[in-house]
């Protein structure tokens, strides 16, 4: 009698867990299907193409050529220029974004009249489509008619107009400038979220003891915020590494100011060389992977929070 009951019970549990399994994965199925169809398959296909001599107008007829594309890529001077540019942009832009983002986060963290307005204003550069930002800044940085040169000349900082976009070195600087302008709001939000999760009483205690803000900032805020800052910087680094839109508009196809993404797309689409272009894209992916390895462990924490 007892045995039968036990059997029945375990059967029920089995049935229940089976049903649960089915409903869990049933709910997940559409999403997983979309991810595999739109991310998994194209990604594997791109890596596969990078070992072939496929061309854009005929994607069915190609030969497997081993690592030839990667060898060509390693020998290609323009590729290394693109790699260098991508590194320069990332290494300069991300710390600048962090510093300015921190300033804005500290402003938004304070309680003052008009904070809502300030928040909306700060979000605006992030909202504006990248292409629009690029065109707006290209107009402002125009060497002959641009307002930036005009202002700088009027203040007396420069004597003659600077060719912000026409010169290769300066155009990289312009790209960095616009990227920092555009993405600092996002950085500020990430840092603000970190600031708000700190124990607020230590700010109050510092204020009551009238400790100068400089001291509070370097002795309390920075050490406590360190993990948030590192995660945000790696995250932004990953994004900046993929930079495409701004470069496409602000350097108009110039090889001297190309980045890895614009280089890959140019070969893939404009030169229709899918094999070589895919090899460049796969190499970019490789760089991203190295960065992502540092980033993923930090996300374990986020996973834990969901338990």
């Amino acid at each position: 009698m007892f045995n039968i009951m036990k059997n029945n019970n375990s059967e029920n549990i089995l049935k229940k867990s089976h049903r649960e399994w089915l409903s869990n994965w049933g709910f997940l199925a559409p999403c997983l299907f979309v991810l595999i169809l739109c991310a998994g398959w194209p990604l594997l296909k791109t890596i596969y193409f990078s070992f072939t001599d496929a061309e854009l107008d005929n994607l069915n007829d190609f030969c497997f050529i081993g690592i030839d594309n990667f060898v060509d890529l390693a020998r290609d001077q323009d590729w290394w220029i693109a790699v260098r540019n991508t590194f320069i942009i990332t290494i300069i832009a991300v710390p600048l974004e962090t510093i300015f983002g921190m300033i804005i986060a500290l402003i938004l963290h304070r309680n003052f009249k008009g904070r809502g307005w300030m928040r909306a204003i700060v979000l605006i550069p992030w909202t504006i489509p990248t292409i629009v930002s690029a065109r707006m800044w290209a107009w402002m940085l125009n060497d002959v008619y641009g307002i930036i040169n005009e202002i700088l000349i009027n203040i007396g900082l420069i004597n003659e107009p600077i060719p912000w976009i026409a010169s290769n070195t300066l155009s990289i600087l312009s790209i960095i400038l616009v990227d920092v302008w555009k993405t600092t709001p996002y950085m500020a939000l990430l840092l603000l979220a970190g600031l708000q999760s700190l124990p607020q009483d230590c700010f109050e205690a510092a204020e009551v003891d009238s400790i100068p803000f400089r001291k509070t900032f370097f002795r309390i805020i920075i050490p406590l915020m360190k993990p948030t800052i590192i995660v945000a910087m790696i995250f932004r680094g990953l994004e900046t590494f993929k930079i495409f839109d701004l470069v496409y508009i602000l350097s108009s196809g110039n090889t001297a100011t190309a980045t890895m993404s614009t280089f890959a797309r140019k070969h893939l689409v404009d030169y229709a060389d899918v094999g070589f272009g895919s090899a460049a894209a796969t190499s970019l992916l490789f760089f991203i992977l190295i960065l992502a390895i540092f980033w993923i462990p930090f996300n374990k924490k986020r996973l834990k929070k969901l338990d």
Binding site: T46, A281, L284, I288, L303
Partner: peptide, 24 residues
């Protein structure tokens, strides 16, 4: 695994899926 998979997809550069997506 599913959450980490979604997270890794966010780090993918768009260029890295371009030719595969084109074929799809």
């Amino acid at each position: 695994r599913v959450l980490m998979l979604a997270l890794s997809v966010t780090t993918l550069p768009q260029v890295a899926v371009l030719s595969g997506m084109f074929e799809l």
